[in-house]
């Protein structure tokens, strides 16, 4: 019997209202992220990529559909349970790095562990190890503004890994980086996926970034579309019901 996927969404829809107009950001999307997979979701701006990520993390409530984590249904649960789910099982890497500006690199990495109530020593040691993992052990005491964009994104990756997540959600992680730095970050993510087996779901509009994944899917106007030409076959899938 096949193992449960780390994350599975069925018929996921999200409709916004902009004044009197209803906007369908997601239209019945099915998604399966197997354990240890590196799934990239491509699509143009406004195709619903970020909405998909936020909905899967419980930061947006879907209009319809279900989300399961390792077989357990998440939809319909309280905000506190969604927060606990994110705290324990998810890591986030955002395009704008999303670091707390007045905390040092080390403190930013310690933050998820503080929310988990871990002992200060454990927080410290884990943060040090992760900063070393992303090559920033010498920048532990620096504030985000004292770091380059690439360094900030590496701190964000270290923070995303602090709670040893089952799934790392990445939203355009190379969107604010030049091609060289983008390559470094993608290499880092691929390394994390390969070494620790952390599943990654990364949305990007960049074909180059999408190529880093082991599984590629495409999203357009809230629907799963055809895989881009030349994309490798996927074990995960993303498709529209519509």
């Amino acid at each position: 019997m096949a193992a449960e996927p780390v994350l599975e969404a069925r018929g996921l829809s999200k409709q916004y209202r902009r004044g009197d107009v209803a906007v369908d950001a997601l239209r019945g999307v099915d998604l399966v992220v197997p354990e240890g997979a590196f799934v990239t979701v491509t699509g143009p701006s406004g195709s619903g990529k970020t909405t998909l990520l936020l909905t899967l993390a419980g930061l947006l409530k879907p209009s319809a559909g279900t989300v399961r984590f390792r077989g357990a249904a998440l939809d319909g649960q309280s905000d506190a349970l969604w927060a606990r789910f994110r705290r324990r099982h998810l890591g986030f890497v955002m395009q704008s790095f999303s670091l707390v500006p007045y905390l040092s690199a080390r403190e930013n990495v310690m933050l998820p562990l503080a929310l988990l109530g871990r002992a200060r020593r454990e927080q410290y040691e884990r943060a040090e190890a992760l900063l070393a993992r992303v090559g920033l052990e010498h920048r532990a005491l620096h504030l985000p503004r004292e770091l380059s964009a690439g360094q900030q994104q590496r701190v964000a990756i270290a923070r995303a890994l602090a709670n040893a997540p089952a799934l790392l959600l990445a939203d355009e992680p190379t969107g604010n980086l030049d091609p060289a730095l983008a390559g470094e970050v993608l290499e880092l993510l691929a390394g994390v996926n390969a070494e620790s087996g952390t599943a990654i779901l990364m949305v990007t509009h960049s074909p180059q970034a999408a190529a880093a994944g082991t599984h590629r899917v495409h999203l357009d106007e809230g629907r799963a579309g055809a895989r881009p030409e030349g994309a490798p076959a996927t074990a995960g899938s993303l498709r529209s019901r519509g």
């Binding site: 930061l59 927060a83 606990r84 994110r86 705290r87 986030f92 999303s98 933050l111 998820p112």
Partner: peptide, 16 residues
């Protein structure tokens, strides 16, 4: 707002 969003994103409950 941005920091609140970050904290909520990484799992801070509303009570925190």
């Amino acid at each position: 707002r941005r920091e609140i969003g970050i904290l909520r994103m990484i799992g801070a409950p509303r009570a925190s």
